[in-house]
Design a protein around this nucleic acid. Structure first.
Lengths: 176, 176
DNA sequence: GATAAATGTTTCGTGTGCGAACTAATTCGC
DNA sequence: GCGAATTAGTTCGCACACGAAACATTTATC
């Protein structure tokens, strides 16, 4: 139980109080975001380690199982990483015999990544879902109304940030 | 968006409707968290690059400026990384002449990391604050009431997750 | 006070993660 | 058509990031 650092006494709200309280609130929210992110990553990694995979590799296995074969670029977009990063991940998975590469016939630049039998078998044995880790927390910590509130607020935030950074962002240019 | 794997039996449909909506909401929130996190990281990195630093190095400089000398372990805790990671970061910063190491006199196991003159000068030239990046978004996208709402909800979430993972987590044992 | 347990740091091996430069294949401009 | 710009993927160099093991120094235990 993190004791709420009761955000400051009314009588002091004169000049600097509002900005200060604002700053403290933002910091706390930012910390929470970072905490939730890193914790979910850690848990994913633990799950993956149980079957001899890394976190990103587990994501790749599940995505390929759910969607089917994907080009490397599409895969990169899915796991929000650069092509050069995914090349390495796929290299190591190929070495382990979990996936293989097949050059596309229509466009000989693209490479399709697909699960091998071994990879597919592994995928079926996994109950993992990307955000499953959050689900318990959301379900137990928040009421349905609160969940909806949170969704609305996060959406506003994300939309705002996206609108601010769009245009100067290389990847976002594609429009997704 | 995320397509639903329908393998439900007819009689379960009634009960499953609500969970499906729930799942979709959770996924959206999780995506927003991930998006905000990665975007803030990217912006931090850009800021840091302007003065020839990496993201983590910028954090170290600002922390040392604000708090003063720190042991490597304390520094690790501050930036939420393992000691072995921070050893590398400090190595590279030492090579650049931004910090140096000094063995403690009381406990010769510990190493104090401190800014050199060069590092301190750099620190003073930086207006950066860790969560500054979020501040504009929070200020412009949300009303004060919404901000407070969001803080409350995120606190609940973080507290819940923390209580769940505490005990089985090595690092968290210290209790912050 | 010698041995054992704990603590702080480093070393090592592996796996991301990114941007820049490169190659090969495709499309655009004219 | 044909050269120029684009696009898909890889390679390279660097900087995290983590866990396990090694190492040094305290502290605890007897």
């Amino acid at each position: 139980m993190t004791h709420l650092k009761t955000l400051e006494t009314p009588e002091l709200i004169l000049v600097k109080r509002i900005p200060d309280a604002f700053k403290a609130q933002v910091d706390r929210i930012a910390e929470a975001i970072i905490y939730l992110y890193t914790e979910s990553r850690r848990l994913t990694k633990d799950q993956a380690a149980k079957v001899g995979l890394t976190g990103p590799q587990l994501s790749v296995v599940k995505i390929l199982e759910e969607i089917g074969d994907l080009s490397l670029s599409d895969l990169s977009e899915r796991i929000r990483a650069q092509n050069s990063t995914v090349t390495g991940i796929v290299d190591r998975m190929e070495r382990e015999g979990l996936v293989d590469r097949k050059r596309s016939a229509d466009d000989r630049r693209v490479v399709h990544i697909r699960l091998t039998d071994k990879g597919a078998k592994l995928a079926r044995s996994l109950s993992f879902e990307p955000f499953e880790i959050f689900r318990g927390a959301f379900e137990n910590a928040l009421s349905p109304q609160e969940l909806l509130q949170l969704l609305t607020l996060m959406d506003k935030l994300a939309t705002y940030v996206r609108s601010e950074t769009d245009g100067r962002d290389v990847r976002a240019a594609s429009g997704k």
